[in-house]
Nucleic acid binder design. Structure first.
Lengths: 112, 112
DNA sequence: TTTGTAATTAAGGCATTGCTTATTTAAGGG
DNA sequence: CCCTTAAATAAGCAATGCCTTAATTACAAA
């Protein structure tokens, strides 16, 4: 329940676009930067944030840095959302049980 | 692929805590604010952001505003993450197929 | 109508974020 | 060894975000 810095990382639309690009496959930093209007240093800074939140990982290949999605960050996000949702649908089930009980009471009352 | 403002909403830890609280059930604005150190207006502003991104919904009850989770925002988040992950695991499958093919080639070569 | 309660909106300050250009680090190629 | 390419870091600046207190709106109760 602590960190969850990954949400902060996803708050920025440029960073989300980077992740969407990487969903299509690995890319070098330069290739990523080339697809944006903003400067390469700006992208480099975004990549740093994504690295620190474990949403991407990188490996060196000569001068190039090859980036790809890191499942760890996605896991974290997914489980946070799932946890929230499960509580929510848990409440729904409870409501349903409540309704069922009321119905059976009504039926019982009708019988006499 | 547009909006995704909900990620920006979740970037703030206070807003995430509000959602976690609401996962336990409906709460009035004042009850939420009472559980934080920060002022009530601060919480009110956070609730506004959560409303606008469809992460919570509200109904009036006399002077009180009763808040609860809104599934729409969660849906949006969940599907964005799922889409990203599916591309990623799609790539893994491809890699696996690739490996399998190489293995069978090696085996075939060995036979003679 | 006046008073009290619940909540939101307004206005202003301060910190953080994301961009830019300039500089630095690192790895080939001639 | 120099020069080029690829990327990251530094420094500075404008915009945004979150908090505060003060003012406003809405409803109910005396």
């Amino acid at each position: 329940m602590g960190g969850m810095q990954s949400f902060m990382a996803l708050a920025d639309p440029t960073r989300r676009r980077i992740l969407e690009m990487l969903a299509g496959g690995q890319l070098a930093a330069g290739e990523i930067a080339g697809r944006f209007e903003v400067s390469a240093p700006a992208i480099s800074q975004h990549l740093k944030v994504l690295r620190q939140t474990h949403l991407v990982r990188v490996r060196a290949e000569a001068q190039r840095r090859i980036y790809e999605l890191d499942p760890r960050g996605l896991d974290e996000l997914e489980s946070w959302v799932a946890r929230l949702r499960s509580f929510w649908s848990g409440r729904l089930d409870e409501l349903e049980r409540q309704l069922r009980k009321e119905n059976s009471n009504r039926r019982r009352r009708k019988k006499r």
